[in-house]
Simulated assay, not measured.
Amino acid sequence: MKNQSQAMAYGLATVLLWSTVATAFKLSLREISPVQLLFIACSASVVVLALVLVLQRRWHLVFSLSRHQYIQSLGMGLVNPCLYYFLLFGAFDRLPAQEAQPLNYTWALVLAYLSVPFLGHRLRKVDVVAGLICYSGVVIIATRGDVLALSFSDPLGVAFALGSTLVWASYWIIATRDRRDPVVGLFLNFLCGLPFIALACGLTDGFGFGLGQGVMAALYVGIFEMGIAFVFWSYAMKKAENTARVSNLIFISPFVSLVFIYFILGEVILPSTYIGLVLIVAGLWFQQWVKAKAPMPEAVPHE
């Protein structure tokens, strides 16, 4: 049953959770490596999503898919969580949270560009203009305001962050042809990806982590960012009478995230971060506003 008030409540809850994860990433990465963070978070998310399916009495759907859909789960699991979060956590490991987090928000713009060759969409002037606005913000953040010198604070970290947007956008283009239940699909993707993540962890940094702040933050990421936030957002979309109003809530997240980054991580927010973030959000908002009457296929935004 549609209920806009409930949709907005679920949307706001999701945005609040997304606003905390950049801080959780950095807290975790202070003590453990990106691949260890990925292993712990993915394991937690598999458990949470399984519990959600059991509580919703949809667990039987996990065993009712076709052979092709199980193979699809394996392929999509290699993309998300394996490749996507490896790049994302790699970016946060190398960059301050205030830089990595805004760069990741450009995934929506990349989605519009990739939809041209892969979904047959037409590239409009709004996409070009939005791209110029957004990526001018990216350059300002990545160079910490020293635009003319084009000296990036950490070129590899910036590459990881922008690479993660490419992978995330590609994932959602693939997902447009996914006919599985959303929660079942995400659960199977993560379940299929987990053995590869465990293998990578075992062959590199190992499993020698204690139950400290790093592990607790990683569990938070898995439970909330990879699990509950997705479920809440799905509820918000299902109950929304006006999905655009709910979708617009995502523009709150990066600014709220800076509050957590400042007070919890103690990062001094640079003027270049504010300027770049405003440009990125303005470009994305402009793109969505112009395309309001002809929206892209629904996808799940990200922190």
Rank of each mutant, 00 (worst) to 15 (best):
residue 91 A to F: 00
residue 160 F to S: 00
residue 232 F to R: 05
residue 232 F to Q: 06
residue 144 R to Y: 06
residue 252 I to K: 04
residue 35 V to E: 12
residue 146 D to S: 12
residue 60 H to G: 15
residue 150 L to C: 12
residue 138 V to G: 00
residue 197 I to F: 05
residue 299 A to C: 12
residue 268 V to N: 09
residue 296 M to A: 05
residue 274 Y to D: 01
residue 208 G to Q: 06
residue 21 V to Y: 05
residue 5 S to F: 07
residue 17 L to R: 03
residue 66 S to E: 09
residue 295 P to C: 14
residue 155 P to N: 08
residue 210 G to D: 07
residue 197 I to S: 00
residue 7 A to G: 14
residue 134 C to N: 03
residue 232 F to L: 15
residue 161 A to Y: 03
residue 126 V to N: 10
residue 243 T to N: 11
residue 38 L to H: 01
residue 129 V to Y: 09
residue 238 K to F: 02
residue 132 L to Y: 04
residue 207 F to G: 06
residue 294 A to N: 13
residue 96 P to I: 00
residue 86 F to L: 06
residue 215 V to W: 10
residue 96 P to D: 04
residue 168 W to M: 08
residue 62 V to D: 03
residue 178 D to K: 02
residue 55 L to C: 15
residue 93 D to W: 10
residue 271 P to A: 05
residue 9 A to Y: 12
residue 15 V to M: 11
residue 34 P to T: 12
residue 99 E to H: 15
residue 152 F to G: 02
residue 101 Q to E: 10
residue 247 S to A: 09
residue 59 W to H: 09
residue 211 L to H: 04
residue 86 F to I: 09
residue 253 S to P: 11
residue 235 Y to T: 14
residue 234 S to C: 10
residue 16 L to Q: 14
residue 89 F to R: 00
residue 36 Q to R: 11
residue 256 V to E: 01
residue 96 P to C: 05
residue 129 V to D: 02
residue 189 N to H: 01
residue 292 A to M: 10
residue 221 V to G: 03
residue 166 L to C: 12
residue 116 V to Y: 14
residue 93 D to L: 04
residue 95 L to Q: 01
residue 113 Y to T: 07
residue 217 A to S: 13
residue 135 Y to V: 10
residue 253 S to Y: 02
residue 235 Y to M: 08
residue 56 Q to E: 13
residue 117 P to F: 13
residue 64 S to I: 10
residue 249 L to V: 14
residue 236 A to L: 06
residue 174 I to Y: 07
residue 71 I to D: 06
residue 203 L to S: 13
residue 124 R to M: 13
residue 201 C to L: 07
residue 202 G to N: 02
residue 222 G to V: 09
residue 267 E to A: 03
residue 271 P to V: 11
residue 32 I to Q: 05
residue 95 L to R: 01
